[in-house]
Amino acid sequence: MKPAAFAYHRPETRAEALALLAEHGEEAKIIAGGQSLVPAMNFRLARPPILIDINAVPGLDGVREEAGQLVIGARTRHATFEKPVTAGPLGTLLARVAANIAHTPIRSRGSWGGSVSHADPASEWCCVTRGLEAELVAESATGRRSIPAADFFQTIFTTALRPDELLAEIRLPLFGPDWHCGFAEYARRAGDFALAMAVVACRVEGGVIREARVGLGGIASTPVTSPEAVAALLGQAPSPALFAAAGAAGAAATDPDGDIHASGEYRQDLVKAMIRRALVQAFA
């Protein structure tokens, strides 16, 4: 299980990285943490002729708050989020999510941007990015653009990024204290890809849910949202019965893919449970 040969570039500036991408396009693959790419290369399922290693490019790490958003540098490692990176419900949520991502040594190298660029529908960050309606900022030698999460994930392992583009930032809404966030997933074994997961965020005003976001992962070719679960929540007072009803509504609207670990029917059961549990956690 040794990868096919490739040429290796290690740009030291963003401009240099973007120039390499412009030059090599489809031939080139960016490596940040490499925690999804390298296994695929070792199995020779991926054979990029050129690797562009962005680990020496300055300015791609770290998080900052800006205009009501949490701006996450694309190369920020999963481990960064194990402790809350921001006060308030979002930081707590991201820490809970991070604990579910693979294992400690994977989290010390794998990055948020790498996860979403890889676009595995069972990735936690993909689910959060889509479920919380993030914006993704891509850069190329010719410019910079923002892509809504809804447009970013196209199908399994496929995003809206052009071959000459580098994902630079992920921007999440900074939820205020009136928001309640939760995450739940089910994996057969610690650290494995989950069979289903749900992320929820609800804004409560006057004892009633006024805004809600529900994202699901691991059940289709991309992470998805659940407008049905959102509809079940809006205008209602949080309660165990409501959480169960939202889970049921969300699950009923899905038609999950089956595989050796989980049939579609079983995944639907899991979606129901995960939405409910994410809500229970959000309001605990």
Partner: peptide, 13 residues
């Protein structure tokens, strides 16, 4: 054909 699909238990199980 991988340890992602054939899954021996870890310390957590």
């Amino acid at each position: 054909g991988s340890f992602a699909d054939f899954i021996p238990p870890t310390m957590a199980e």
